[in-house]
């Protein structure tokens, strides 16, 4: 009995911290989804935030300063792109995609300028933060905050209206464009947090460290029907599937590469079978 229990806590120990950055990212994507913005920029924003975090942590020695700078710069970047999109009436899907390109170029350029490498930037004598235990509770708290924001604050209600009925919001004196920009900024905030979490945990920045988590987060938003708690459940399911495939690889029964696709296949089956909410 004791063995089963410890195995279970072992699973949670590795599962929950791994799910946390993904949960944060999907919360960001969720908020922007509510404002009618398809957050295809998440992956690039996570990478960007992660890089800034490591760079500043390395320079100041304080992870807190790193996270703060990551948040500030990522929000600034996405704020600028969002304002540009609103002002020029550009296609938001394209400008969001451009964030990914800009992020990969900018991180790589500054990495070679600051650290003389475009590869891994590891912080010497930095062995990750001993905060893994807190990752998941913190992410859940963020989910609660997002839920509260969307349901219980006037800005949250306006943001939802900006996505589903911008003309109604405009008639009430709200500026839908402003709320869309707000949603980009909130998404940037969470992307920066997710990026920082990923990189601080590694004690290093690796090019493309987000490795598609931004896209998975977007998928989780749909799987969770745009509800923060259901999204958290979807993220846990994703992370669980991923964890299972990590274990599965060790059994050596199946080609390792094929196993990598299983979480997505599983998500596809679940999504296809679960009844859809009517629009």
């Amino acid at each position: 009995m004791n063995g089963v229990f410890s195995a279970f806590t072992g699973v949670l120990d590795s599962l929950l911290p791994a799910a946390s950055p993904l949960l944060l990212a999907s919360l960001g994507a969720l908020v922007s989804e509510h404002a009618g913005v398809l957050a295809v920029f998440m992956d690039g924003a996570i990478n960007f935030g992660g890089f800034v975090c490591i760079a500043v942590t390395g320079a100041t020695g304080s992870p807190l300063a790193g996270v703060a700078a990551a948040i500030a710069l990522t929000v600034l970047l996405l704020f600028a792109v969002s304002r540009f999109t609103e002002r020029t009436g550009a296609n938001p899907f394209l400008t969001a995609l451009s964030v990914n390109l800009l992020s990969s170029g900018a991180t790589s350029l500054s990495s070679s300028a600051l650290f003389g490498t475009r590869g891994t930037v590891a912080l010497a004598d930095f062995s990750g933060l001993d905060l893994r235990l807190w990752y998941f509770p913190a992410s859940l708290a963020a989910a609660a905050a997002v839920s509260f924001f969307l349901q219980r604050t006037l800005a949250g209600i306006s943001l939802r209206a900006a996505g589903s009925a911008p003309e109604a919001l405009a008639a009430r004196g709200g500026d839908p464009g402003k709320y869309r920009t707000l949603s980009w900024c909130i998404a940037a905030f969470f992307a920066a947090c997710a990026g920082s979490m990923l990189t601080l945990d590694l004690g290093a920045w690796v090019p493309n460290v987000s490795a598609g988590r931004g896209w998975t987060a977007l998928a989780a938003v749909y799987l969770g029907y745009k509800n923060p708690w259901l999204c958290a459940a979807a993220v846990l399911a994703f992370a669980g599937a991923e964890y299972a495939t990590n274990i599965l690889q060790g059994l050596g029964r199946m080609p390792a590469t094929i196993i990598l696709g299983l979480p997505y296949a599983l998500a596809l089956v679940v999504f296809a079978l679960v009844p859809q909410r009517k629009q």
Partner: peptide
């Protein structure tokens, strides 16, 4: 002009000043 995704109360609150709904 109403936002279909919101409840009646939320629709009425839409655009009013302040922070908390």
């Amino acid at each position: 002009l109403l936002c279909d995704e919101l409840t009646v109360t939320e629709n009425i609150l839409l655009g009013s000043p302040g922070f908390l709904a």
